[in-house]
């Protein structure tokens, strides 16, 4: 959405609105052999973000009720640990050695 630029000055100048930009949405970019994978990954990431938001809310409630914290107390450390668990499968690295 485009606003008159002068509004950001608290209305002290009467600048007209700038010309509107083309409103065409961006074409989809895909990175996998089947675009269904790209979109499904989008759904997975949306769910992951949602789970993280719930974790964060849970921490707030725990803090308020005095319940023993089930989640790392530092939000940044918790987010980093959560993301490391979430993304661990992406690079295909295995921990157990052996053939087959």
């Amino acid at each position: 959405m485009i606003f008159p630029t002068a509004a950001a000055l608290g209305g002290t100048r009467g600048a007209p609105a700038l010309p509107a930009m083309p409103s065409a949405p961006l074409p989809e970019q895909t990175f996998f052999s089947d675009p269904a994978i790209d979109r499904l990954l989008g759904v997975t990431m949306a769910l992951a973000a949602e789970v993280y938001v719930l974790r964060d809310r849970l921490r707030a409630i725990e803090a308020r009720t005095g319940a023993p914290a089930a989640i790392e107390p530092s939000p940044d450390a918790d987010a980093a640990a959560f993301v490391a668990r979430l993304f661990a499968p992406l690079a295909g690295e295995q921990e157990a050695k052996g053939p087959l």
């Binding site: 990431m45 992951a48 973000a49 993280y52 938001v53 974790r55 964060d56 809310r57 707030a60 939000p75 940044d76 987010a79 980093a80 959560f82 993301v83 490391a84 979430l86 993304f87 992406l90 690079a91 690295e93």
Partner: peptide, 28 residues
């Protein structure tokens, strides 16, 4: 609060993307 948590998740995901995931990719 929810937007702050969402943005924290995205920031952590970007750190993982440009750190550990990048290093593994570079090696592979």
């Amino acid at each position: 609060a929810e937007s702050a948590a969402h943005q924290r998740f995205v920031a952590a995901a970007r750190s993982y993307w440009r750190g550990p995931l990048f290093r593994t990719l570079h090696a592979q």
